[in-house]
Amino acid sequence: MKNDILKARNSAIIEGISYRVVFKTKGSTYKIYMVDEKIKCIKNVKMKHIRIDGTNFLKDEFYYRASGAPSKGGRIKLVSQNDTYDMTIQVATGRVMLTKVTGKKGDVYE
């Protein structure tokens, strides 16, 4: 998921268009859309071993502008069988960080 989100950010910068990321907690899926003259779904992923437990994004979505900046910063809570993670999208820069919040605490994956 993190790599897909980073790819959407980089694609927005390279192509000069917006990319929208939409999370669905029911079914633990996420979709990435290319937003140009038309809206086109370019990635549709159903998580198998990790559950999307919630986000703090309005309508569970955000988009990357052509500058690479996100429409807003926020968090996605991910839960596996043994661990819980927070994925953070930083406002202004669009940086994506994955932090383990249960298990061995303090692990940050960038």
Rank of each mutant, 00 (worst) to 15 (best):
G94A: 03
Y85V: 02
D83L: 10
I14M: 12
T55F: 01
V22Y: 03
C41M: 14
R20G: 07
M97H: 05
R65V: 01
K2F: 07
M97L: 15
K31W: 00
K38F: 11
Y30F: 15
K77C: 04
Y19W: 09
L98K: 07
E110K: 13
I32H: 05
E110H: 04
L6W: 00
T55M: 03
T29V: 02
T55A: 00
E110A: 13
T88Y: 00
T29N: 11
G73N: 04
V96L: 01
F62R: 09
G54W: 08
R75G: 03
T84C: 10
K100M: 09
Y85T: 01
N56Y: 12
S18C: 06
G103I: 03
V101N: 06
G106A: 04
V79Y: 08
A66I: 07
K48V: 10
I39H: 04
F57R: 09
Y109N: 05
N56M: 10
G106H: 07
N44Y: 07
F57C: 12
M34W: 00
K48Y: 03
V101I: 15
I50G: 06
I39L: 12
V79A: 01
I76P: 08
R20W: 10
D53V: 06
M87N: 01
T99W: 02
I14D: 14
K59W: 10
N44F: 03
G73Y: 07
H49M: 05
I39G: 05
T55P: 01
Q81F: 14
S28H: 07
A8P: 01
A92N: 11
C41A: 13
D107S: 03
D53G: 05
S71H: 09
A69G: 14
K31H: 08
E37H: 06
E61A: 04
C41S: 01
K72I: 09
Y33L: 01
E15Y: 10
